[in-house]
Amino acid sequence: MADPTYTPPEVWTNDAENGGRFAAINRPTAGAREEKDLPVGEHALQLYSLATPNGVKATIMLEELLEAGFSEAEYDAWTVNISDGTQFTSGFVDVNPNSKIPALLDCSGAQPVRVFESGAILMHLAEKFGAFLPTDHTRAEVLSWLFWQIGSAPFIGGGFGHFYAYAPEKYEYPINRYAMETKRLFDVADQRLAQAEYLGGGEYTVADMAAYPWMAPFVFGGIYGEARKFLSIHEYENVERWVKQISARPAVRRGRIVNKAWGEEDEQLLERHSAADFEGKKL
């Protein structure tokens, strides 16, 4: 049911009591709230992240590069707990002024390079190492699917996920609106994957790394409570085939647990500094 009592005011003001689960950290302003430096490890690549779908994109990419033999892709991964507001420390804001994970600091050159936004990180690493992003006529197709995912994520996360799972009150209109859009996006992917093995075509690329962390939890039933049943995700058989195929990749199994701070202890890896950190973990 829609709320018949609310009429938007002429000028919006923030009401912290109406922020729901994230009221303690959500504000309509940017910038640092606390002076605190970020930790720095020994590798040239420093990742500051959390194993949300957007964060997992970066760790899968880094692990895939290592799996492919690019030793210079070794990295240190540090957990940024967004529920505690760690993303608003001065050190993190210096790397990402938008205060969102993931954020990457590339210190391999003469000057450190900051890279923020998950799609930018995927492209930076792909171009840096010459991997998972074709340079021939298929490049445009891969980039199209990469940016399709980047543009789609807000409808699934901030849209469907928020109103279905996190909003303090449940309202029919926004849930229906974003459920429809989420199902439409799954149908787009399902029809594409009926034509091709991967989103970009016949090869596994950054487009798949971007979309997989968002779609796989719906297939496995690990996101937004009963969302898999509510959205009838079982209908998208080609997406399920693709998800299971990618899930079997060793690099993906590793990447999914880096910076994970919930679930079983043997499925978490709060910090990652070398391949040895995965010993004893359930992959």
Rank of each mutant, 00 (worst) to 15 (best):
G158T: 11
G151E: 11
I82V: 14
L65I: 07
S144H: 14
S152G: 14
G158W: 12
H124I: 02
L104W: 06
L50H: 10
Y75R: 01
I150Y: 00
I82D: 12
G157Y: 10
G85V: 10
T59L: 09
F129A: 01
V80H: 06
E63N: 00
A120T: 07
G151N: 12
A103D: 00
F147T: 14
I121W: 07
V115L: 07
F116C: 07
T89W: 02
K57R: 15
A153L: 09
A68L: 13
F92I: 04
I150E: 10
A126Q: 04
G69A: 08
G119C: 14
L65F: 08
G159N: 10
F70D: 08
C107F: 07
F116A: 07
E72L: 12
Q87H: 14
H137M: 14
V95D: 02
D76P: 03
S108G: 11
S49T: 15
M123E: 13
K57W: 00
D106L: 00
A110T: 15
L47I: 04
W145S: 02
A126C: 07
G85D: 13
I150H: 01
L47T: 02
G91K: 02
T86L: 12
L66T: 08
F155N: 13
L50S: 12
T59W: 04
K128D: 09
D76Y: 00
W148R: 06
Q46V: 05
V113S: 12
L66S: 11
N81A: 15
I101F: 09
D136V: 03
M123H: 08
D94N: 12
V95M: 09
M61A: 07
S71G: 09
C107E: 14
P102S: 07
S83T: 13
A110E: 15
F92E: 00
S108C: 03
F163Y: 14
Q111M: 11
L47H: 01
D94G: 08
D76I: 07
S71W: 02
S152F: 13
Q87L: 03
A77T: 05
P53G: 10
A153R: 00
G119P: 10
G161E: 02
A77G: 08
F129T: 05
F92G: 03
M123T: 15
F70E: 13
W148P: 07
L45A: 04
V142M: 09
E74P: 10
F70Y: 15
K128H: 08
P97M: 13
G130N: 09
G55Q: 06
Q46S: 03
Q46I: 11
G161V: 11
L104I: 02
A73F: 01
I156W: 09
Q87A: 11
T138E: 14
A103K: 00
G157L: 13
I82M: 14
T135P: 01
I156T: 15
F70H: 15
Q111I: 11
N81H: 14
A73D: 03
H162K: 12
L122S: 02
L47A: 01
N96L: 08
G159L: 06
L65K: 04
Y164R: 11
F160M: 08
Y164L: 07
D136N: 11
Y75N: 03
G91A: 03
L143G: 03
E117M: 05
F155D: 12
L133N: 02
A58V: 09
L122A: 06
A167K: 05
A51T: 05
P134R: 10
I101K: 00
P134H: 06
D136I: 04
